[in-house]
């Protein structure tokens, strides 16, 4: 399973990771290895087998519609890297680069 550098770039962009050139090349090689190994199960014929997303099967778990106390504004913003007027401050929002 060989991953090309275009795929690494695409996945890094989806994952919001600014990889350096060096990291990218290393990542390409490692991903290829790991997916090579993990990809062994791709060939399995598992058509009649249902997927399992939870090891223990539970159903219909919900809570009553009741209001609980919220954090104060101060608590909510306590660890914000930047804040202004009671809000979290973020740099200019742009679409995907």
């Amino acid at each position: 399973m060989d991953i090309d550098s275009g795929t690494v770039d695409y996945v890094a962009r989806l994952a919001r990771l600014a990889l350096s050139d060096e990291e990218r090349e290393q990542m390409r090689a490692e991903l290829s290895d790991i997916l090579e190994h993990a990809g062994r199960i791709r060939a399995l014929d598992l058509d009649g087998v249902e997927p399992t997303s939870h090891p223990v099967r539970l159903l219909n778990v919900a809570r009553p519609d009741e209001v609980r106390p919220s954090l104060s504004q101060e608590e909510a913003l306590a660890c914000a890297p930047a804040a202004e007027n009671g809000r979290f401050k973020v740099p200019r929002i742009i679409e995907e680069a």
Binding site: A15, R16, L17, A18, E23, R92, I93, I94, E96
Partner: peptide, 12 residues
């Protein structure tokens, strides 16, 4: 910078 760069650099 901008949100994409900030997110990506922070995570990297």
């Amino acid at each position: 910078t901008n949100i994409v760069t900030m997110n990506s650099m922070t995570r990297d």
